[in-house]
Nucleic acid binder design. Structure first.
Length: 498
RNA sequence: GGCGCCAUCGUCUAGGGGCCUAGGACGCCGCCCUUUCAAGGCGGAGAUCGCGGGUUCGAAUCCCGCUGGCGCUACCA
C-alpha cells in the first residue's frame, strides 16, 4: 500500500507583507514537502474582505521567491486543484455548510451582532466564559430570531452544532496528544452572513479538496483545533497530520511586531542579508540537525528535515546571530557571484555623484579584500567608495591622528617623502608599496621615536581611503593606482599646509 | 474569568534515567596573529536544567502540584 504523496501548503491571508514568523512556517512547509519529494502549494485565504490589502499577493510570492521557497501550485501559477484563492471557491464552502445543516451538525443563526455583543458583555460581567447562548440552536428561538432578522433585512450565519458533552483529542505531530472538553467549546461560526466562510471551515474544505496531507501552522491555533476536529468528523474527512509550530517572539519575549524592528523579509533583504543566510537561520528557529551544526545547506536541510526534531518552546528572534551567519555566507560565496552582488548593491547605495555603471573590474579586485570584513551588504558602499571616487571627505583630525596631532608639519613632510618614494617605485605592486612605506616608517621612527610605523601607515591610510578604518592599505593602493594615490597624498599635504 | 500550550547559559539549541562535575553556536571578555578594521586561532566568564514534592540504587530526563511566560476565548486569521 502506497502512502499518498506528501502535500503541504502555506496559506496566508493577503493582509499585507508576510511576517517573518509566518514565513518560518512556510520554510517548514517547503522543507517537509521537499524532504518527502511531495508538493508545496500556496493558497490565499482571503475570506475576510475587511482586512484585504492590495498587492499582498505580490508581496507574498515575492517573499517566498526571495527565500527560494518555490511552490508547485498557487494562485499565480495554477495547478490541478485550483483555484488557489478562497474567494473563488465560495460554492464549496456553502455546499459543505449545507451538508452539515442537513446532517444536523450545523444550524442557521439569525441573531444580530448587537445581541451577540450584549450577551457577551453580560457574561463577562458575571465572570462567565463568553459564549454564544445557542438561542438559534432551538427551533423556537431560531424562528423568533429569523422573524426579527428578516424584518430588519438581515441574513444569517451558519454555526456548528457542538456536542454539549464529550471530548475530542488532538494528535499533534509536535505537541503530542491534547484532550479537550467539548462543554467548553462554543457553537462557532463557519459561514458568515456575507456568504464567506470563516478560516475554520475554509481551510478544511480546501485541504481536503487539494489533498493536503500535513497542516503546519503557528501554535496560536492549538485552541481552535478541537473545532477543526469536529468539522473533519462531521464532513467525514480523514484528519491530516497536524503540526503546530512554536511561536517566534521579539527580543522582549512578546509576540513579534513592528516595534521589534524588521518583521518582513524585505527589510532583511534591504539591510543586506542574503536569502541563504535568512533561510538557514529561519530553518534553525525551532528545528536543529544535531548538537553542533549551525551552517546548513539547503540540500542538507531537505535531506534531514522532519517534524520530530521540531521543538515545542517559543524562540526569540536573535538578529546578532543572523548577522554572524550572514557574514559566514558572504565569506563562503564564490568570488564571482559575490562581486556581482556587491556591484548591484553599490549601484543601489552609492550617491549619483559616483559614475555609473559601477566598474565591475575594480570591484572584482576589491572583493577579496573586503569579503572577510562585510557582514551586511549595506556596509559595502563605505568599504568601496574611495575606489570609485576621488572626492574624499575626511577631517584634519582623522588625518593627523594622535601622534601627529601637535605636528602637522612633521606629517606633511612624511607625506611628501612618501610621495617621492612611491613615484620612484619601479613596480606598482602592493609588495613594493609596502616595502617602500615600511622603510619610510622605520626611518621616521628612527628620527622621532614617538612616531611609530603604524602612525605613518595611518596617516597614509586616511589620505588614500578617507577613513581610519579601511581594507588593507597596500592592496588598496595598488588598485587605486599610482597616479591617483600620489594625487591624494598631494591633496592631503596641501590640506595640512592650509 | 475559562480553556490550552510551554519552561536547559542573555539568545538559539543538544539532551529521551547512569556516557552530564550539562555539550555546541551567537554575543561578551582576554590572549595570539596583525598596517587599521575584520577574519582566524587559543582560552575564559556564563545554566545549582523555573520552584516544591514524589518514583528510582540513580532524574535535566518519568509523575504530581505550584509559579511564571505565552496563546485562544470575533460573522480575524
Amino acid at each position: 500500500m502506497n502512502a499518498p504523496p506528501v502535500r503541504t501548503r502555506y496559506a496566508p491571508s493577503p493582509t499585507g507583507v508576510p511576517h517573518i514568523g509566518n514565513i518560518r512556517t512556510a520554510v517548514f512547509d517547503y522543507l517537509l514537502a521537499r524532504h518527502f519529494g511531495g508538493q508545496f502549494v500556496l493558497r490565499l485565504e482571503d475570506t475576510d474582505r475587511t482586512r484585504l490589502v492590495p498587492d499582498s499577493v505580490e508581496k507574498i510570492s515575492e517573499s517566498l521567491r526571495w527565500l527560494g521557497l518555490d511552490y508547485d501550485e498557487g494562485p499565480d501559477i495554477g495547478g490541478p486543484y485550483g483555484p488557489y484563492v478562497q474567494s473563488e471557491r465560495l460554492d464549496l464552502y456553502r455546499a459543505a455548510a449545507d451538508r452539515m445543516i442537513a446532517q444536523g451538525d450545523a444550524y442557521e443563526c439569525w441573531c444580530s451582532s448587537e445581541r451577540l455583543d450584549a450577551v457577551r458583555a453580560e457574561q463577562t460581567r458575571l465572570k462567565q466564559p463568553p459564549k454564544y447562548d445557542r438561542r438559534c440552536r432551538e427551533p423556537a428561538g431560531q424562528a423568533e430570531a429569523r422573524t426579527e432578522a428578516e424584518a430588519a433585512g438581515r441574513t444569517c450565519v451558519v454555526r456548528f452544532k457542538t456536542p454539549l458533552s464529550g471530548e475530542v483529542t488532538l494528535h499533534d505531530a509536535i505537541y503530542g496528544d491534547s484532550t479537550f472538553d467539548l462543554a467548553t467549546i462554543d457553537d462557532f461560526v463557519m459561514l458568515k452572513s456575507d456568504g464567506f466562510p470563516t478560516y475554520h471551515l475554509a481551510y478544511i474544505v480546501d485541504d481536503e479538496a487539494m489533498r493536503i496531507t500535513h497542516v503546519l501552522r503557528g501554535n496560536e491555533w492549538i485552541s481552535s483545533a478541537p473545532r477543526h476536529l469536529l468539522i473533519y468528523q462531521a464532513l467525514g474527512y480523514e484528519v491530516p497530520v497536524i503540526a503546530h509550530l512554536p511561536l517566534i517572539l521579539g527580543a522582549d519575549g512578546s509576540k513579534l511586531s513592528k516595534r521589534h524592528g524588521a518583521t518582513s523579509v524585505f527589510e532583511y533583504r534591504d539591510q543586506g542579508f542574503l536569502p541563504d543566510a535568512v533561510f538557514n537561520f529561519l530553518g534553525l528557529m525551532g528545528w536543529s540537525l544535531d548538537d553542533k551544526t549551525e551552517i546548513i545547506s539547503r540540500e542538507q536541510f531537505i535531506e534531514h528535515f522532519t517534524l520530530d526534531r521540531v521543538v515545542k518552546n517559543p524562540a526569540i528572534f536573535n538578529v546578532e546571530k543572523l548577522t554572524w551567519m550572514n557574514g559566514v555566507y558572504i565569506r563562503e560565496m564564490p568570488a564571482e557571484r559575490l562581486t556581482d552582488i556587491f556591484v548591484a548593491r553599490l549601484d543601489a547605495d552609492l550617491p549619483p555623484t559616483i559614475a555609473r555603471p559601477i566598474d565591475r573590474d575594480v570591484i572584482a579586485r576589491v572583493t577579496p579584500l573586503i569579503r572577510e570584513r562585510v557582514k551586511l551588504l549595506s556596509e559595502v558602499a563605505s568599504y568601496c567608495e574611495f575606489f570609485l571616487t576621488d572626492a574624499l571627505t575626511y577631517s584634519r583630525e582623522d588625518l593627523l591622528g594622535k601622534r601627529f596631532a601637535s605636528g602637522p608639519e612633521a606629517a606633511r613632510s612624511v607625506i611628501e617623502r612618501a610621495n617621492a618614494e612611491l613615484e620612484a617605485l619601479p613596480d606598482w605592486t602592493h609588495d613594493a608599496i609596502e616595502a617602500a612605506l615600511r622603510a619610510l616608517g622605520d626611518e621616521v621612527h628612527g628620527e622621532d621615536a614617538a612616531v611609530k610605523t603604524g602612525d605613518v601607515f595611518s596617516l597614509i591610510r586616511v589620505a588614500i581611503t578617507g577613513s581610519k578604518v579601511s581594507p588593507p592599505l597596500f592592496e588598496s593602493m595598488e588598485i587605486v593606482g599610482r597616479e591617483r594615490c600620489t594625487e591624494r597624498l598631494r591633496a592631503a599635504g596641501e590640506r595640512l599646509a592650509a
